[in-house]
Design a protein around this nucleic acid. Sequence first.
RNA 1: GCGAGAGUGGCGGAAUGGCAGACGCGCUGGACUUAGAAUCCAGUGGGGUCAAACCCGUGAGGGUUCAAAUCCCUCCUCUCGCACCA
Length: 840
Amino acid sequence: MKSNYDYSEIEKKWQKVWIEQKIFEVNEENSKPKFYCLEMFPYPSGKIHMGHVRNYAIGDVIARYKKMKGFQVLHPMGWDAFGLPAENAAIKHGVHPAKWTYENIDYMKKQLIRLGLSYDWRREVTTCAPEYYRWNQWIFLKLYEKGLAYRKSSFVNWCPSCATVLANEQVIDGACWRCESQVEQKELEQWFLKITAYAEELLQDCDKLTGWPEKVLTMQRNWIGKSEGVEVDFPIEGMKESLRIFTTRPDTIFGVTFMCISPEHPLAEKLCDDKSALKKIRLLQREPEVKEGVFTGKYAINPLNGEKVPIWIANFVLMEYGTGAIMSVPAHDQRDFEFAVRYGIPIKVVIKPENEELPDPLKEAYENEGVMVNSGNFSGMSSKEGKKAVADYIEEKGLGKKTVNYRLRDWGISRQRYWGTPIPIIYCDQCGIVPVPEEDLPVILPENVSLTGKGESPLKYVQEFYKTKCPSCGGDARRETDTMDTFVDSSWYFIRYCSLHDESAFHKDKIKYWMPVDQYIGGIEHAVLHLLYARFFTKVLRDLWIVPFDEPFQRLLTQGMVCMESYRCPEHDWLFPKEIKDGKCIHCGKDVQIGRVEKMSKSKKNIVDPDEMIETYGADTVRVFSLFAAPPEKDLEWSSQGVEGAHRFLKRVYSLIYKHHSWLKETEGELSHPEPSSLSILSLIHRTIKRVTFDIEKEYQFNTAIARLMEFVNEVYHFEPKTEEERKVFKFALKNFLILLSPFAPHIAEELWHEIGEKGFILNEPWPQYDEELAREQMIELVVQINGKVRSKIMIPQGLSDEEITKIALNNEKVKQWIDEKEILKVIPVKGKLVNIVVK
RNA sequence: GCGAGAGUGGCGGAAUGGCAGACGCGCUGGACUUAGAAUCCAGUGGGGUCAAACCCGUGAGGGUUCAAAUCCCUCCUCUCGCACCA
């Protein structure tokens, strides 16, 4: 055995052996419980970053732990390989997207192997491979058959920089989620998936997702945005059309003093004579600060009280939501209130708070519940009852109907780019839209294209691709040249992992065995993108009888970001950590300003390269640090000194074994009746097993689990077994310690496992059991409090009764001094370890 | 504005209502060394003391309790998400 911890040699050696011996390969085993552990697959952008390292280290600990716990663990990895960066790289450097992508995959796969991650690589999924995306096309055809995929022309979100369309979920604060360019509106024909057909179920089933963070569920519920209300028709004076509005507050309908419609409303042109004013309002549509409007000159009739109210066109009314028209109740809606004040429109109170008077004039809208007033027959009713009563009345009289509205929009999936799945549709002048027959799949993405990034699909110019025959009439026809949003790829990849490559993507028995995913791990940034789409696809596939469950991911862990301090030079702007020496910029010697701790990003240069870390400290160190520095769901602050600390710990582990390795190899770690001299070691390891197991089971608290392992090492570091008995016990302890360490630092654990003379792979060992009796400390410190303050600590044997500890406490000299002449009111013993004496 | 979460040493972070600060980093001192690095040992919330005793301390203020970082109320700060959704 080498005297120094040669992590590089150890890690290379075992990575090779593990793969040769196929120890990460797994198949269905009906006699064993399964566990599907999944981490979000990466986009192959070139190299992995620390965020990936953290994500996959967390997943690997869980997978290895569950395996040792006796589960059949599916732990796969793949590549979200279609996407814009490949295409942009192609435009910039002239490399074909496929070449660029596959080379990146090669490199990144090596990196993942170097981290010692326990993936079954036979199941590797690459979404840009025809054998994968053919199933995207297949699913698309099924959606089309069911009327869940349709084509329509509409205004879409257009990112001028990516030169393609974005789904609503992909627009963040009016900017592109990928490149942050300002998103424009553009009218285009495109394909939509009818996710709205599942809106209610997607919402309802949030309640089933008990293993998801509440935060993510809130975001999804919010995104779906259900609201219940009524649609009411307001006749327009002097016209045969009426104005249909949506409201969630029918109880305020007697307080309507004006109507507002969106400038895009179909009646806007007709109602408004002042076209230039209309134009102006349109321009102000995305200005949330100002409420602007123009009076159309027309009036609507309130169907409940016959009042005549003016119709305005207003910039704040959205055409996309509800009916694009609203009834305005300034007394009870803040937006309407502001608008009314600005244009001098009357404000009529129809809801009064229970026990107070509203100021007159109102200073702001009163939006809470109360009692209805000035509301005809409904006056006197509580607003809560009124909501229902007015809605019922409206339905009864045929004035409108109760309606449920969702904010969720259908998912636009057409992308005007090359590097994606071709949409399997053919346009025929005779037959119209014709789906590609199933047996003709896959529609292969051609390789010889010239990429421009100009906003039109490059496939439009590839004759061999788009020129085709109509499957229906055999005449000349054109293929659809748009490709699919890459979120389609990731909406079902977890199902593809269940079967091997030479098998169908939808192998029923295998899906039934492995799915759903028991633990999914990834970043919170996908809370409403990928995670919503994947849920939607799962429900569609269920309705196609392909999968037998409603939800794909049982438990979800959203890991925190990896952050680091950023540094800035007054002259050279952001600096890499290595561009700083003694607080000065190495280029100009100026003082470096330390920026705040924030997410590692290339632009701020506050990044560390996983390769360099592995090179300097080894994969085990990188894993241990990223698991130890913070609990998984919290942000992690990268610290180079912290990494050294993790490395130091592993070095101590190594030298601990090294010190004893000569006799450890020859000793069996069996236990008879341990002598008192070795009882404390035995107790320590049982306690360590208990705590580490508990920390992993309870919300994956790897940081404290590792702390327990460190404590163990600190305590036994100088232990010298003297007798044969002590050696046996010590060996037993070290052997179990290595098993506990192995999910976190698998290479060093494996190496030392063999150095102490154990056989087989540590991953195949069962997770150790602990003995509750032995795990208890033999001697404990009895804490004595007087009036709640700690006054004395007495060493006592473990397991004494409350009566016994009370007696010990009261007889303690120090305690006696404190009690003195005072009267003892009460003595509270706690679980044999603490006594609180209340005196006066 | 609405919703969620979080405020604990110099720092990252621990604490089923029961000893606040586990573990790690940093720092201080010591050992080893010609010297340094590495390693090992000890100390390390603040005040106080030769040392102790003791006092104070988990964003602020109140409350419940024998006992509160933890439960309840009020407020402050920060982070994240949503935001004219009628």
